[in-house]
Design a protein around this nucleic acid. Structure first.
Lengths: 240, 240
DNA sequence: GTTGTATTATGCTCTATAGCACTTTACGAT
DNA sequence: ATCGTAAAGTGCTATAGAGCATAATACAAC
């Protein structure tokens, strides 16, 4: 019997989508049993292996847990560790409203080190945007972001002030950000930073420098952030 | 034909082991083509699906990359991001030799907050071990670890000085550590810490506080570390 | 009540086969 | 030499089964 692709999407993906839909609709809650392999096979008119394939994929994504002899169950909602989030997303995930104040928005050409991190020839024109991040009306972080002026033409102050950088890159340039490599250390506040963040000069700050890559694995943003250590602790999960 | 388990281990795992062996032996290097599904099936006398299963597993672990139409290739060695490592492992992964000096090893009973993080009743007896971590003969970090005195009886100074805590827990208590949740922030060195780490008083330090969980998801260790920010930057990878 | 012991349901491993989708490569025409 | 095109090779989706290993359940014996 020839495998018939009903709408171009593979059967196992349709099965996954059907299950996810029921979870999102609240029809299935954490801990509830999902249809077994054999049930799914019958319901969707596919073979056992295909039903298995669908469930195995959902398990890998952490959506369900499978216990041999017992069944397949909806997994408890995971706390999103090690997730790359925009400032806006970070704040709203903590139940706060974030806002920012743009301090400067210029182009620079003499940042060889940063150009190198973005895999650009040294001397490339870079857009440099400095923003003060505020949470609950309190200064929170000082963030400087660099990106190629050539790859993102006509990106100016006005456009940046309307909406998050992540979504602008996504919607207006078709560049979706996928992952970031971060270097984290501690540093002392210099005079200017101290004033902006309303801390004493020399106060310890958390410094996070990240290279953010697009879905095509191209280094797209370089971000250096200085965070008030009394307002921000980073949460990380590590695995063996 | 009945599926014959030659040595109790499933066929797909044997196939994986065979490929891994060739990679570790240097017989296969990064970028080299691995046997194709059909070749593996013939070589190991299994069906195509079983060979596929083996390769799919290796791909998930990041050992190989599969490109449809092209083949399966040994993946470049991954930098181990977000990996839970003992101090010893951390140092050797950077090509250094780590050593430590135990500063104290006592039991405490009045650390309610820490007991709570370890899911123990407040007032539980905790073993508290303070160690100075050295890398390349230079002070590097001050680390304090807490663990239940009841769950790990007869764990004393002498035993701790012989071998890493990770391996002692694994070998002598059958507790394997699986993942850690970390809180990271910056703090200023107090007088005692400054002296131990050979930095100025008030110098910015990276503070990492972690709860380390066993494979059975039980909180097992609480570790608080203060790291010289000039000797240590944390590397993290985040995903969308 | 508690304790074994079948029964049943479930996930896991595996076979043998088929066709599709995509890449690379080799070969022939230009 | 360069450009298409066909062929071969590879991974991907899928079928229709079989038997094994484990977990929960119900039921009988104590």
């Amino acid at each position: 019997m020839p495998p018939v692709r009903q709408n171009g999407t593979p059967a196992y993906k349709r099965i996954q989508a059907a299950i996810l839909k029921r979870i999102e609709a609240g029809q299935l809650r954490a801990g509830d049993a999902v249809d077994s392999e054999r049930e799914l096979a019958k319901i969707h008119g596919v073979s056992l292996m295909t039903a298995r394939h669908a469930l195995a994929g959902l398990e890998r994504e952490g959506m369900v847990e499978r216990r041999r002899g017992a069944g397949t169950f909806v997994a408890p909602p995971k706390i999103h560790f090690n997730k790359l989030m925009s400032f806006t997303e970070q704040m709203s995930s903590r139940g706060l409203v974030g806002c920012s104040r743009m301090l400067s928005c210029t182009t620079v050409e003499d940042e060889a080190e940063i150009a190198a991190k973005l895999a650009l020839p040294s001397g490339s024109r870079l857009l440099k945007v400095e923003r003060l991040r505020l949470g609950a009306e309190e200064p929170f972080a000082l963030e400087t972001v660099y990106l190629s002026a050539q790859n993102f033409p006509a990106l100016n102050r006005a456009r940046l002030e309307r909406g998050s950088l992540f979504s602008i890159l996504d919607r207006e340039y078709g560049v979706t950000l996928a992952h970031a490599d971060e270097e984290i250390d501690a540093t002392a506040a210099d005079a200017r930073t101290a004033e902006l963040l309303c801390v004493a000069r020399g106060a310890p700050l958390l410094r996070i420098r990240q290279v953010i890559f697009s879905t095509t694995a191209e280094p797209t943003l370089y971000v250096s952030g200085l965070y008030r250590s009394d307002r921000h602790t980073l949460l990380i999960r590590r695995f063996r």
